[in-house]
Amino acid sequence: MHGVEGGMTEMFHVFYRRLLGFLPNFFTALILLLVGIALAKILRLVFLRFFKAVNVDRFWDRAGIREVLVRGGIKRPLSVELSRTIYWFTVLIFVVIALNALQIPVIEAVLSRFFLYLPNVFLALLILFAGYVLCNFFARAVLIGLVNSGVQEAGIIARVVRFAVFVFAVTMALEQLDIGKVSVLIAFTIMFGGVVLAFAIAFGLGGQHYVKTYLERRMEKSEREDEQNIDHM
């Protein structure tokens, strides 16, 4: 009985000593976290004022990014979004520093792996964002151009363009994340090549008659539309 008691006491002693050894690290981490949050808040305010001063929201609107994000549910101006990003980035940095200050080997190992992978995640997100903006931009340009040319299938073609550009961006992002690097690329190549081949076969063989009739109809229509000499200017 005494042996068990002695063991228990010894265990608590060890725990207590370790706790005493750990507490300074814990409080250091806590202080670092609080300082980080305070600093992040200050930085958010400073950058918000700076972004507003350099009129970054105007660029947001002009580049058409605002419109794309509004559609995706993000309604705040770029200045607010950027300053919020800076806030969370600062908090994240201080969380990592605080976790390091705890000096726990397992956490340190996970953090080092996480930090090595983080740039890939960041780049992949950037690629996805750029892809999303670009696919909408190109799709709209194609849509307006085809509508103004009188192409009835303008909507479908624009959707295909949007999908193709976004799939391309997703492929690039996955490649950046090292996820199925080769297989994704091969899948994309096969899919893209397959679509082109399918169109070629459809137009060349299967839909020969349809395409002929379609093109003839379009040519006739185009000629009919040219049968006007109105001077718009």
Binding site: V147, G150, Q228
Partner: peptide, 28 residues
């Protein structure tokens, strides 16, 4: 003045196509 030929039906067709495909954009 020289005769001016106008293809009204063609113009209306272009308008209809625009109204069908660009309505979401115009709504903004």
């Amino acid at each position: 003045l020289e005769q001016v030929l106008v293809n009204v039906r063609g113009m209306i067709d272009r308008f209809r196509l625009g109204a069908r495909e660009l309505a979401d954009l115009w709504r903004m």
